[in-house]
């Protein structure tokens, strides 16, 4: 009746390292269900990550996996896709890994529209290294390096991806667990660079510094801020203040980089 996650988990790897109440486990379950529903085989699926809490994910799942240097997951994933275009390449990472340290790789992968699914688990903080503020830490929030509140405005990852040229952009939350696999499955079916941002919770390094009393309070916060796209269209700008729009935010069809590159090679070789 329940989903059998066991067949996609490497034997002996659980329990995972994520803290109690960390949403990454919920997202990983969603990713497994999505891959299962799309029907990607283990041998033809490559899961790539950079460094960070979220980037530990490939260690647990039984696919072709690659754990790379900080922020460079997308660059390695691009290499895999170019060398083996028949592979289903999924890149996973956190907000710091994706849009700070790997920010440049991220925008250029969006620009090229290479067929990779990029899952960003956005927990608003650098959790693994001790709670430093990241580019998605909200203004005024406390982190170990912003003890008086963060003066910087945060990135909107979805808008960044759309602006940079990604052809599929979706957003969900760790609270809306049943939606995660649907968004990811749609992203995997899309031919082009697909970005799925999942708002996540970090009770250990973000929650306890920002007056969230428990894991449940953080989960309920995700529930409160999320507004589905269909509902958001009927709301005023005033009502949407402080809210986050979820669902498939952007989708278009454009030529995919790896196949266009192959065409170029064939054209040049034909003389």
């Amino acid at each position: 009746m329940g989903f059998d996650y066991g067949k996609y988990i490497r034997p002996g790897k659980l329990p995972h390292i994520w803290c109690p109440g960390c949403g990454h486990g919920i997202v990983m379950k969603g990713l497994i269900r999505a891959i299962d529903s799309v029907g990607f085989s283990k041998d033809m699926t490559s899961i790539v990550s950079g460094i960070g809490c979220a980037s530990r994910l490939p260690g647990y799942v039984d696919f072709c996996t690659l754990h790379t240097t900080h922020g460079r997951g997308v660059a390695f994933a691009t290499g895999i896709k170019m060398a083996k275009p028949e592979m289903n390449v999924i890149c996973v990472g956190g907000d710091g890994d994706g849009v700070a340290i790997g920010g440049n790789h991220f925008i250029h992968a969006c620009r090229r529209n290479i067929d990779i699914t990029y899952l960003i688990m956005n927990n608003n903080i650098y959790g693994m290294t001790g709670g430093q503020f990241s580019p998605t830490t909200p203004t005024g929030a406390k982190a170990s390096t912003t003890p008086y509140g963060n003066p910087d405005p945060p990135f909107d990852i979805a808008k960044l991806a759309i602006g940079a040229g990604a052809t599929f952009v979706a957003r969900g939350t760790a609270f809306h667990a049943a939606q995660i696999d649907k968004l990811l499955a749609e992203a995997m079916r899309h031919k082009g660079f697909s970005v799925v941002e999942i708002l996540d919770s970090c009770p250990t390094t973000y929650g306890r510094r920002n007056k969230y009393k428990s894991v449940i309070e953080m989960m309920n916060h995700l529930k409160d801020v999320a507004v589905p796209l269909s509902a958001a269209e009927k709301m005023t700008a005033e009502q949407l203040r402080g809210k986050v729009i979820t669902g498939v935010l952007y989708k278009e069809n454009k030529p995919e980089y790896a196949s266009e590159y192959r065409k170029l090679v064939e054209r040049v070789q034909a003389g």
């Binding site: 009746m1 329940g2 996650y5 329990p15 994520w18 109440g21 949403g23 486990g25 667990a177």
Partner: peptide
């Protein structure tokens, strides 16, 4: 089962 982040809870029939 959907929400357990640690793969600890299973529901079967």
């Amino acid at each position: 089962e959907l929400r357990c982040p640690d793969f600890a809870v299973t529901v079967s029939q």
